[in-house]
């Protein structure tokens, strides 16, 4: 497949998803431009994880469709060019840091490339713990390994589900610097978060609640339209107004 297909990196069209009685996504649509970082903001249970799973083709929507890099999902060939850091740590605890990162690298088609693996581990500042078993690492370190697994194969589109939870502030700054560099290389990032203070680093934000996209735009635009000081206040403003037209 040609990863350069399509103008948008990600397109979501009128997606509905039910889990039993829970209507987790209610006709949600959005488009994400290449080389940008999109922040999905919303409280717990808003539908962020579900949306990411639908975009990745991991769960089939009840209706609507999603495209990644111009291909309708799910598409196994596209998945060689996407990276996914799950909300939970999701690593093989018995294996070492190196073995975990290597496993996901090879899965994405990267033949045994020690350099790429070492780079990914260095990026999350764990070179010294390369041969430690994941079980022996702290929670924050495990999240960093998880991020390395999502980035090791240099994906075009990266989904990061609450990536900075439990990561200390200094490293968080490093992460965001790296995300910026990735954007400059044309990589598209989707970052979900339920804390608003990270949001300003994203190019565009989507406020999501009860499976509905309340408002979309850059942080400045959202603040201006809501006429509020902080994004938190803005979120409450849009939440009272109900979904955007």
């Amino acid at each position: 497949m040609n990863p350069m297909n399509g103008r948008c990196a990600v397109e979501v069209q009128a997606v509905h998803k039910h889990f039993g009685r829970v209507h987790a996504l209610r006709g949600l649509s959005l488009q994400i431009e290449r080389g940008t970082t999109y922040g999905l903001l919303g409280p717990n249970g808003a539908g962020k994880t579900t949306l990411i799973r639908v975009i990745m083709g991991l769960i089939a929507p009840d209706s609507g469709e999603t495209h990644v890099l111009g291909h309708r999902m799910p598409d196994k060939d596209v998945m060689a060019h996407t990276g996914y850091m799950t909300q939970r740590v999701a690593l093989y605890e018995d294996l070492t840091v190196y073995q975990n990162v290597q496993f996901f690298a090879v899965m994405a088609g990267l033949a045994h490339d020690r350099r790429a693996i070492e780079e990914a581990v260095a990026l999350v500042d764990l070179s010294a713990r390369m041969d430690s078993r994941v079980r022996e690492l702290s929670g924050g370190m495990q999240r960093r390994v998880s991020l390395a697994c999502a980035l090791v194969h240099r994906p075009q589109v990266v989904m990061l589900d609450e990536p900075t939870v439990g990561v200390d502030p200094q490293l968080r700054v490093q992460f965001w610097d790296h995300f910026r560099r990735l954007n400059q290389e044309g990589v598209t990032l989707i970052v979900s978060s339920h804390v608003m203070d990270e949001a300003e680093r994203c190019d565009r934000l989507g406020f999501i609640r009860h499976g509905v996209l309340l408002a979309e735009g850059s942080a400045a635009e959202l603040l201006q339209r809501a006429g509020t000081e902080t994004l938190e206040q803005a979120f409450l403003h849009y939440a009272e107004q109900g979904p955007a037209a």
């Binding site: 991991l58 996914y84 740590v89 690593l91 899965m107």
Partner: peptide, 14 residues
């Protein structure tokens, strides 16, 4: 349970 299967499903493996 650990979520690694979900992660695996997000790779090209069938």
């Amino acid at each position: 349970v650990a979520g690694t299967l979900e992660r695996l499903q997000a790779t090209p493996i069938r």
